[in-house]
Amino acid sequence: MVKIHPAGIFLSRKLLRYLLSFFCILLIVFLLPRMMPGDPVSNLVGEDIYLSQSTIDSLRAAFGLDTPLHEQFIRYCLQIMHGDLGYSYHMHGPVFEILISRAWWTLLYTIPSIIIGAWIGISLGARAGFQSGKWWSDVIASIALVISSTPPYLLSLLALVLFVYHLGLFPFKGFYDTYNLQSILYHLTLPTLVLISFYASRNILIMRGAVLTEKELLYPQFARSLGIPEREILFHHIRKNAIIPLIVLIALDFGFLFSGALFIEIVFSLSGMGSLMYDAILARDYPILTGSLLIIAIFVIIANITADIMSLIIDPRIRRSS
């Protein structure tokens, strides 16, 4: 009998779950327009579009709306496997291409924000948790608590009012005035800072909590009794254990980067993927909405798989016990 490595079993069980949840999302996206009241054709192409009767008939045939549901579903899945997410009548283009062209702009400032936010969160949170009695630790934790209990768009709006409207430090909207690096950096500074503060504050809270629980355990006390300096206990012993839940969350942040940027882009009028979704909501452009949901779902699942592999690498306990 072939012996399968426990890590392999762990990963394959997880993979099965991810496949099933992607299937659920596909099912939601497939069933919603067909089950909703009203004409499924207008539910599929979006509202407020004038289509002639002959176009509607040809679309009905193209979607296969007269065939049984399971045949429609198979046809739909095949379409998606070929990278065909539909055609947006509002934007006059294939959904996939529109999404890709916008997604680059979003990636441009969300990825640095997540990385910097993770770095700030880990280093500040670890120190704040280790010296939890100090006043500055409480100040940091309180600020982080307030920021993370504010709805994300509210924080961006307050930053917009304070720094743009009131102080006039940053530009009102858009990615650039003239298409060069300096202008783009200038326009992206404030949105990136807001996003960083949001990610950082959540990471600080979680890292602080994890360090607080870890430092009460026996092994840091033992290390202390051996005369190892506090700094080394924190960075070489405690941080290794405390970071594990956070690594998973940070990996998931990469999965959620498009929906995380949604509100920032609306407030700062950045024409990335978030504002594309917002315009699609306002115009009821359903092909764009379902397309972006599928892209987000794929990103989330890839991020989940990465998180699992990373926790397997970092944490030997999972590798052995699973």
Partner: peptide
């Protein structure tokens, strides 16, 4: 728990937005 895990992975905000947009 299988069902719970599956639902846990579904990205909530985008799905809620989509459902709300239709409804």
């Amino acid at each position: 728990m299988g069902v719970t895990d599956i639902i846990l992975i579904i990205p909530k905000i985008p799905v809620t937005i989509l459902i709300a947009a239709y409804l």
